[in-house]
Design a protein around this nucleic acid. Sequence first.
DNA 1: AAAACTCTATAACTTATGTTATGAATTTTT
DNA 2: AAAAATTCATAACATAAGTTATAGAGTTTT
Lengths: 258, 258
Amino acid sequence: MTLLKNPVFQQLRKSGALSAEEEKRLLELEEKPRRVDACETLWHENDRVDAFCVLKQGWAYSFRTLDSGAKQILKLYLPGDIIGMRDFGFSRRLAGVEMIDEGVVCPFSHQQFFEVVDYSATLASGIVAIAVRQQAMLTERLVYVGRHTAQQRLAHFLYELYLRLSRIDAVKDNTFSLPLSQEQMGDALGLSSVHVSRTFTMLRDEGLVLRDRQRVQLPDPAALACMAEFSDAYLDESIPSPFLDLHVIRSRAQLRHA
Amino acid sequence: MTLLKNPVFQQLRKSGALSAEEEKRLLELEEKPRRVDACETLWHENDRVDAFCVLKQGWAYSFRTLDSGAKQILKLYLPGDIIGMRDFGFSRRLAGVEMIDEGVVCPFSHQQFFEVVDYSATLASGIVAIAVRQQAMLTERLVYVGRHTAQQRLAHFLYELYLRLSRIDAVKDNTFSLPLSQEQMGDALGLSSVHVSRTFTMLRDEGLVLRDRQRVQLPDPAALACMAEFSDAYLDESIPSPFLDLHVIRSRAQLRHA
DNA sequence: AAAACTCTATAACTTATGTTATGAATTTTT
DNA sequence: AAAAATTCATAACATAAGTTATAGAGTTTT
């Protein structure tokens, strides 16, 4: 997975909004791949912000630790996601990030990012759009953690994952791998691990979710989405047309500079 | 309140990172002020995304409406905030936005934003940093809605407001105006209005919050922050040093282009 | 292969918060 | 100024989710 394969950049590319040089610059952010182990910490809460990462392989999550020792998992990162944009413009990390399984990340520095932004407004806007989309998932979780039952929360969580994984071809026969313990899912959804277990049992009894260890199957994804009151607008991948005209604006601006 | 007065741009300015032309460009985003009434809708969920707004005067909030008719309030906007960056890169609004009291907004278009980004990486980064800071508040609310008691949630909400209002000089004698009904606070915190009322009573009994209609007084803000387990990192206004060197990177890049 | 862990399911019990209802206090409309 | 509509406080009751405990199933270590 590269950034260039992200649907946002795919659309820009197809519409001819990306020059060869821009594609090259974007790929330069992924120049320094690094293997990371399962459970490895990428950074801690409160560390100095020095780098962002493209996640090439593996799963990761960001989290906050509370005084009580409880964890709140903020965001699950899948291959192709950018990790750490949440901290852009802050001196210190607002959240820790850990790998779930082993994988590969490509760190890039503040300065590299600035250079890309400075070189191309199109690349800058594309990266911001990707970051905004990631935040949108978090916003959506606030809605359902605040207002929905445990069943709906878990159903929503599983269905969102199902959609995200589908897009990177990680779903076969409505089945995917979910390398999270029930405790971790509880930490993401604001539920106790016991209640996550109870809720899985209920979802199984209703025929909505079959699970065997890390294998999860959704026999009727539509029914699951419906009971979770899932609204997929926030996962919409299509970018608005003004975006595609960016390079036009850009050329006009260059004319003006000249 | 102008964008230029936002702490992010104030810092850039003081460190000499903003040219006169850049300041001018930034102010051009605020060229079309419009009076808006109390309770006026700025846009609905699912509207086409056409503009963003600088909120000059008054309070606003963004929200999602659920199938059940319940509302989840996502974010409170105070003067100096940018409204709508959450939807950047999406075709449709993910949330509605309404004014709370009357005020003034300055809408600017996608295209105007692109032109600013294209003109200056410094301005682009500054605006992104402001948007990231706003999202950070939302992320923080996920943490306490997911993991904290009603008392802590309300305490956190009030203390965060107290800090944000302090920065725009809207707090006198630890007292500020809060033009939200208890039902609306419930909608923000994922609580019923009845329980918000109960919780206010508890906070009063503990001497942490005095309230008379829209006047709210925090006799001991530090104690309130403590009981809410408030961590103020996410409201930190200082931007990291690579930011301040942006114009240096920029000039280097221009040299390379030449 | 046994031992030690970790994860999961389920039960019993507790508690925080939701729901419904009522009356008083404010605010808005007529 | 009266009437109508909100908003707020409080009570009584209902319930979803938390907590603690136990045992089995899987996994890892020895």
